[in-house]
Write a protein that binds this DNA or RNA. Sequence first.
DNA 1: TGGGCGATTCGCT
DNA 2: GCGAATCGCCCAC
Length: 201
Amino acid sequence: MSSIVGQHSEPSNTTRQGFWARHPASVAADLIGWSVFVDGVGGRIVETEAYHHEDPASHSYAGRTPRTEVMFGPQGHVYVYRSYGIHWCLNFVCWDEAPGGAVLIRAIEPTARLDVMTERRGLMDARSLCSGPGKLCQALAVTHAHNGLALDRPPFQLQAGPRAGLVVGPRIGITKAAEVPWRFGEAGSRFVSRPFPRPTG
DNA sequence: TGGGCGATTCGCT
DNA sequence: GCGAATCGCCCAC
């Protein structure tokens, strides 16, 4: 599933339930190169991470709680949680065999309304506007108020797009199952949160 | 009801 | 490169 959908395609295939009813790692890989906007502010997704219900690093691993409720709900919705008591993190709910999975959006290449993002972030450097899960939520003004909202309805807008290439690596900032290679990025992108490890020979 | 912990970021060295 | 800031969630007592 790496089809490139033109802007005039009927609702982009992200709106089809089938896209999200797959393993989070598959969805996370396919989302690279797509664009996400919140109230018209956003850009191209260049970095994601997958979290699965059988994955010890996933919030859903310990079971269903009020906080993780959305992860067990319908696919194609937004799961937002607070990180370190300071930042917000944006996830897209997806799962196939059993409920409880999501893709963390870790970095975006800003393309739309950089002026708004610049003001929200208090920065001039486009490269640093959305190069991290907490950063992009600040730039796109995503908060807990968005938790549970559907991705195919305002204020969200998703649009398929091409990517230069896919790179894979271990996830960042976790202690459990840190070796699982479920971090995905666009090859050569300068807008990722951190460089991907070079393929070792 | 209390304490430990975390899918982070930023500034200072 | 390292550590502080900061607070909601979750489990144990």
